[in-house]
């Protein structure tokens, strides 16, 4: 889970920056508020990620304010950064259990960046369904053991999708909260 998080933290920052240029501490606060849950991101992690993004040309320093310390820089997303976020959001995650954190992150970011979150859910559903079709087919042709295993996977995948659908249905509510 943490691995997943680390893998997507860059895109998450990019998403946060897409809405408006921010200082590092602002990014951290936003991140913690929406995605940090019980585990706020460390400052070190914030600046490491930002410098990685800066190196990759996905963000740029928009302004440096006079004074001391690392927080003088205000970061803005670049053209390439926007593309990167869009690609990431549009890419369905490999269906697998315990995916919701990534999906949740994606949904919130999509909303935050004014994108159609529903699109994302549709894409993800299609991906899920593809796997579920395979499982259904295997179930049809397989023996009892195979059927039971497939059913187990199917029910889990369905649970994910249901959650996804519920989230879609609550988008309005969520949007109101996120944009506050």
């Amino acid at each position: 889970m943490c691995i997943v998080l680390r893998m997507s933290i860059g895109q998450t920052f990019l998403g946060l920056l897409e809405a408006t240029p921010r200082h590092g501490y602002d990014i951290k606060r936003r991140y913690d508020e929406h995605f940090g849950h019980a585990r706020p991101v460390a400052y070190g992690q914030v600046y490491a990620t930002l410098s990685r993004l800066l190196r990759g040309g996905l963000v740029e320093v928009e302004a440096v304010e006079p004074g001391e310390g690392p927080d003088r820089k205000r970061y803005a997303i670049t053209e390439a950064g926007v593309t990167d976020v869009a690609q990431w959001l549009a890419r369905p995650e490999q269906p697998e259990p315990y995916l919701q954190s990534v999906l949740y992150t994606k949904v919130v970011l999509a909303l935050l960046t004014g994108r159609q979150a529903a699109e994302l859910l549709d894409v993800q559903r299609a991906e899920h369904l593809r796997l579920m079709r395979d499982l259904t087919r295997r179930k049809r042709d397989g023996d009892l053991a195979e059927q039971l295993i497939c059913d187990h996977a199917l029910f889990h995948l369905e649970a994910d999708l249901r959650w996804l659908e519920l989230t879609t249905a609550r988008l309005d509510e969520l949007a109101a909260q996120v944009r506050r």
């Binding site: 549709d122 894409v123 299609a126 899920h128 259904t136």
Partner: peptide, 28 residues
């Protein structure tokens, strides 16, 4: 249907939202 497990019996799905269809031809 609104059940994924039921939809999994299909070959292909079409999504309707607010009266619009979305044809998701996801490459296999």
């Amino acid at each position: 249907t609104h059940e994924a497990r039921v939809a999994a019996y299909s070959d292909r799905e079409v999504v309707v939202r607010d009266g619009r269809t979305r044809n998701l031809e996801v490459a296999a």
